[in-house]
Design a protein around this nucleic acid. Structure first.
Length: 894
DNA sequence: CGGCTGCATGGTC
DNA sequence: GGACCATGCAGCC
């Protein structure tokens, strides 16, 4: 306060002082005229003497009174001199992306072409402007050194794209306090533009916020100030009314609280022709909530936004900015944090860095109206600090409310002893509660708790899931504890909150609330206490209800789940966890399966010799080059012990014998059979091979293949194939050990269960036994089943029910006939499910028992019976997906 | 034995 | 992997 440099201008216009509002007026005492100047936040207008009024009206206010002040710049477009930053000229320019400024006229032109242009803070936040300076002044925030949370500056593209004005760097302190914190005291509204007065309540919309000085006056900041405050890391106290030009940067007045209205020493500096663009400016900026430009500006502080005076209801663009972090409880210097800064007044506040560390879920969502309700007294300033959803523990009978560490350290008195301090907290009804603010050592840290909250909690009828809010009333420095019922807050907000790019969730009802608020008047004196007293329960409820409805901006997802669980953290976490699980069980698995599928087709790069590394005794082939997609093949061993690879032509489906080391493209045909020119044509008959015949009893020239899985000979090309085999093979049937070395892994033999043998790319060797229960097998089996089921589900969903019936009918028909090959192409169940894969039904495996049905995800796996009945598999809940999938493998995995 | 206290534990971010 | 925090719980009254 002592630092408050309240000037005559700082005197609230509402005070009806008959002095010229312009502190630089040479005739400040001239009372006769009392002509209206720019509109103040209060809705009143600065009362100017004739001379000043003329200057204002003529747009020469700044030239008259601020000529020697810093902040004069030239419009990059027209070169006109523009005074930047003072309250009068706040709307007369915009900041350019590339630096520099542009007068509003030029900006308008630009705007018309580029709706997304970044506007000067002064334009955007004109309404907000006025709050800080006075607050600072009043609170002696001399060292707003805490850098503004960087994260908050990241949010809005505003920052990055265009608003890089020095001006913006100077007033970030404004955002030190929550954006929605409001100064409830009626006061002087800083006018944004001289034209305000000519526009229907433009400033009302744009600059509802009032900053209350300790002396009870209300100062307005220009929009630029507010805007800048968000960005400012330097916590420069800036006189809102002060010129914010470059020159001021250097003297950012750190720690110097000046009355914004001192700026009002300013005059009208809307170029020399304020009127010429005044209206356009207002129409586009002040009035136009709907205008792209305005969107930002208007809603930022618009009462429309339910924010009422001092509260900024950010537009989408602005909502991208992180919400202002709660200001340090000035009355309770907290030194626990290194970041805390001692202000001149003796108060301390936490560095913005600290505030930024506050989790969004702790950001206060209290609305102006709520604040007002709490405040009641128009002479108090309420600063929302933080909020917390009550956990089961908090709301339990233990009576301990766990405080977020950061919040506790930021807003509560510093405590060095675990015993802590008694803390008096006032509720919305004015009732004072005594808590014990203390902490416990915890993991080299502290856990802060408020003890003795049970009575209060019970009084408020709070339960887990409800939210308590902590605010501070200044200048008393009292802590106020509000609350919000989950039931009130969640339902509507869940449904209506709109998440912005910044993670802000802004309840649409804000507007409604704003409307209400406006109707009631920004400073409607509503004594919460009285209200509460009128009906104890209903009062709180009513308040809470209002809280919930009006203003708690749900900024994070969890916050919107108030009603979903007793504990936001728990619930939220659970929710997120569930979500993750869902992803895991659905998409992720899908991806994994896809990966598995891909793996099965991977082949070692043809020209890359692997490096064999030994891991835990197992030799692993390492390839430097990326694997290639290959065609699934089948390996057999003839009686001579010779390994043979068989591949099926994509066109004729004939099987061709290939060298064991042959790598085939995914689409391989007979014409590519370079190893056997005689059979490089589909017209050539399939070679008769005993081993293959055992596996693939085919009919020459037929496109139907029947695979008889001979477990002792079949070597599938990857783990999934192995699993497919396993799925088909009955329990206890093992891949008999073979003395034959595998083709790809000469050191290993069929039946080998080493890790090498299940390598997808080159692991064409023997696989694990069907009954193998190693982790690999189990995992692959599980995934395989999941894949199967999911595939089946998808296909089932796609297929009309009729087609399914048709398939079943066909299957039954085939079963009855017993002679028709089940795997007849286009007939076999599952073919439709896997149209891309030649579906081959395993002979003798088909029946109506889903337990025995497996779908092959790959051509090779198509060897497995695909006669799965999706409906039967889907019967179980999602949870049982795995289980149902596992059923077919129950034996194998047993 | 119930409640309280202080700390430990484990989940979540 | 650390910090945070919800909760558990042993010890004490």
């Amino acid at each position: 306060m002592s630092t408050t440099t309240s000037t005559a201008a700082a005197v609230p216009a509402t005070a009806n002082l008959k002095i010229c509002f312009n502190s630089l007026c040479k005739e400040p005492k001239s009372e006769a005229q009392r002509r209206k100047g720019w509109k103040l936040r209060s809705g009143d207008h600065a009362e100017l003497c004739d001379r000043c009024s003329c200057a204002y009206e003529q747009g020469t206010f700044c030239e008259t009174f601020h000529l020697d002040a810093a902040g004069w710049r030239k419009c990059e477009s027209c070169g006109k001199r523009v005074h930047c930053g003072c309250i009068v000229s706040a709307s007369s320019y915009v900041l350019l992306d590339a630096g520099g400024i542009e007068c509003i006229l030029c900006a308008k032109k630009t705007l018309s072409m580029t709706p997304n242009s970044m506007w000067s803070p002064s334009l955007i936040l004109s309404s907000q402007v006025s709050e800080r300076p006075k607050e600072h002044a009043g609170k002696s925030w001399h060292q707003m050194t805490g850098s503004f949370p960087s994260q908050w500056r990241q949010g809005p593209h505003l920052w990055s794209t265009g608003i890089q004005s020095d001006l913006q760097q100077r007033l970030s302190y404004e955002f030190d306090r929550p954006l929605h914190s409001e100064r409830l005291i009626a006061g002087v509204r800083a006018s944004i533009s001289a034209q305000d007065k000519k526009v229907a309540e433009p400033s009302e919309r744009l600059t509802p916020g009032n900053h209350v000085l300790r002396n009870g006056t209300v100062a307005g900041l220009d929009a630029a100030s507010v805007f800048n405050m968000y960005r400012e890391e330097g916590n420069v106290l800036q006189d809102s009314g002060h010129h914010l030009g470059d020159n001021d940067l250097g003297s950012s007045r750190k720690g110097v609280v000046t009355d914004p209205c001192s700026a009002s020493t300013s005059g009208v500096n809307f170029e020399s022709r304020p009127n010429s663009y005044a209206k356009p400016l207002q129409s586009t900026i002040l009035k136009g909530e709907s205008s792209p430009l305005l969107g930002l500006a208007a809603s930022f502080s618009s009462p429309n936004g339910s924010n009422g005076p001092g509260r900024a209801s950010m537009t989408q663009s602005q909502r991208q900015m992180p919400p202002p972090i709660p200001k340090q409880l000035s009355s309770n210097p907290h030194n626990l944090n290194d970041n805390s800064v001692e202000v001149r007044s003796g108060r301390s506040r936490v560095d913005a860095r600290t505030r930024t560390q506050l989790l969004p879920r702790y950001w206060p969502r209290i609305t102006d109206q709520e604040l007002k309700q709490i405040n009641g007294d128009s002479n108090s300033v309420i600063t929302p600090l933080f909020e917390k959803m009550l956990s089961a523990s908090d709301a339990g009978r233990i009576g301990r409310l766990v405080l977020p560490k950061k919040c506790a350290e930021a807003y509560f008195p510093p405590i060095s002893q675990p015993e802590g301090l008694p803390l008096k907290v006032q509720d919305a009804s004015g009732k004072e509660w005594a808590f014990q603010f203390r902490f416990w050592p915890n993991n080299n840290s502290r856990m802060y708790v408020l003890e003795g909250v049970t009575p209060c909690i019970q009084s408020m009828q709070l339960q887990a899931g409800d939210t308590v809010t902590f605010s501070r009333i200044d200048p008393e420095g009292k802590l106020v504890m509000g609350f919000r019922k989950a039931s009130n807050a969640s339902s509507e907000q869940d449904a209506q909150t709109v998440k912005t790019g910044n993670g802000f969730l802004t309840p649409p009802e804000n507007n409604k609330n704003a409307t209400d608020f406006s109707e009631n008047g920004p400073f409607r004196s509503q004594k919460v206490g009285a209200e509460s007293k009128s009906s104890s329960n209903t009062t709180d409820e009513a308040i809470l209800s209002k809280f919930g409805k009006n203003g708690f901006i749900q900024k994070d997802g969890s916050a919107t789940k108030l009603s979903h669980g007793p504990s936001r953290r728990k619930g939220g976490n659970l929710g997120s966890r569930n979500k993750r699980l869902r992803i895991e069980s659905e998409d992720s698995i899908e991806l994994k399966v896809t990966w598995e599928q891909a793996q099965e087709l991977l082949r070692p790069p043809p020209n890359d010799n692997p490096n064999v590394v030994v891991i835990e005794g197992h030799e692993i082939e390492e390839y430097e080059e990326s694997p290639v997609l290959g065609k699934p093949t089948i390996f057999t061993t003839n009686q001579a012990g010779e390994n043979i690879q068989w591949a099926q032509c994509e066109d004729c489906f004939k099987w061709r014998k290939l060298p064991v080391d042959a790598l085939l493209p995914s689409k391989w045909t007979c014409s590519e059979n370079k190893w056997d020119p005689e059979r490089s044509s589909c017209s050539t008959a399939q070679e008769i091979d005993t081993e293959l015949a055992d596996i693939l009893p085919t009919t020459a020239g037929s496109r139907r293949s029947r695979v008889k899985l001979e477990n002792n000979n079949l070597e599938v090309s990857d783990g999934l194939d192995t699993l497919a085999n396993l799925a088909i093979l009955g329990e206890g049937e093992c891949l008999p050990p073979s003395s034959q070395p595998t083709t790809k892994h000469p050191r290993h033999r069929p039946g080998c269960t080493c890790i090498v043998c299940i390598q997808p790319p080159s692991g064409k060797g023997p696989k694990h036994k069907q009954s193998c229960t190693c982790n690999v097998c189990l995992t692959v089996k599980r995934r395989f089943r999941t894949l199967m089921l999911r595939r089946e589900k998808k296909q089932t969903e796609k297929e009309a029910e009729t087609s399914k019936k048709q398939i079943v009918d066909q299957s039954l028909e085939m079963m009855i006939s017993g002679s028709e090959p089940l795997q007849r192409e286009g007939k076999c169940i599952g073919d439709g499910s896997l149209p891309q894969s030649p579906v081959i039904c395993v002979e003798g495996e088909f029946d109506n028992d889903a337990e025995n049905r497996v779908i092959s995800p790959s051509p090779l796996k198509a060897q497995i019976d695909l006669n799965i009945q999706p409906e039967r598999e889907e019967e179980p809940s999602p949870k049982s997906d795995t289980g149902s999938i596992m059923r077919p493998f129950a034996d194998a995995t047993a």
